[in-house]
């Protein structure tokens, strides 16, 4: 089994509506897999089902070959799945170091300051007082110090200035190069496709395209029709 995360024929309802309809996605280790799609396509819902925030109604989720579909969020997290939610979910009242300590023991959190040296001078500052960009770095770092096998990133560009997003995106590439399986969900296609290996396009809850990122960058009408439908 080469895939760190395999999503098969997954169906996810949300308040009575089928939001994700029979989706297959493979996320191999050492690669950045990009998931694109217009607003409301079901990207966030898909991620939430993968990490167990909401239940799936059919299909399966395999982590490293193990079926985790019936397991809870905590179990999945402990198997090496890390889900960075939308919206910079720092623990606002805790210091930067405590945010990291909540995720990993003290000896392991140094990695955070290696990948984001910007955070080093804020170690004892409350996370709620950081700027939006710094908070986004912190939540990514908080996931990374757990050394996950699979990293799910949900629209880390949301509400960030372009320059901050530009700072985050090479880090994501580096994490994959170090062996992590990354599933990057984005609204802004260009930057994500620039660093991705494979891409999927989700539209109305179904995959309408899958293939190498390079291919998608050139075939812009695929993207366009997905976003317009």
């Amino acid at each position: 089994m080469s895939c760190a995360l395999r999503i098969s024929r997954l169906e996810v309802p949300r308040s009575g509506f089928e939001i994700v309809r029979g989706v297959d996605v493979d996320v191999p280790a050492g690669q950045v897999t990009v998931l694109l799609g217009p607003n409301g396509a079901g990207k966030t819902t898909l991620l939430e089902a993968v990490s167990g925030v909401i239940p799936a109604s059919a299909g399966s989720i395999h982590l490293d070959g193990t079926d985790v579909t019936g397991e809870g969020r905590v179990r999945r997290a402990r198997r090496g799945l890390s889900h960075v939610e939308q919206g910079r979910t720092v623990f606002g009242d805790l210091s930067v170091v405590d945010n990291l300590l909540a995720a990993a023991p003290r000896p392991e959190i140094g990695l955070a300051f290696e990948i984001f040296p910007e955070l080093d001078r804020f170690r004892e500052r409350k996370a709620g007082l950081l700027s939006g960009g710094e908070q986004q770095m912190l939540v990514v770092a908080r996931a990374v110090v757990q050394r996950p096998k699979v990293l799910l990133l949900d629209e880390i560009s949301l509400g960030l200035a372009p320059i901050v997003f530009g700072r985050l995106i090479p880090v994501v590439r580096q994490l994959a190069d170090d062996g992590m399986a990354v599933l990057l969900v984005e609204q802004f296609a260009a930057l994500a496709l620039g660093i991705g290996d494979n891409a999927y396009v989700l539209s109305n809850g179904s995959i309408v395209f899958s293939g190498p990122c390079a291919e998608l960058s050139t075939e812009s009408e695929v993207l366009h029709s997905a976003y317009l439908s």
Partner: peptide
């Protein structure tokens, strides 16, 4: 203690804490 930190974390964002593997329940 680290458990203390984790408890403080889960009290503000329980879903996020669970996604980090903190046994919230």
């Amino acid at each position: 203690t680290r458990i203390g930190v984790q408890v403080a974390a889960m009290s503000t964002r329980s879903t996020t804490a669970e996604l980090l593997g903190i046994p919230v329940r």
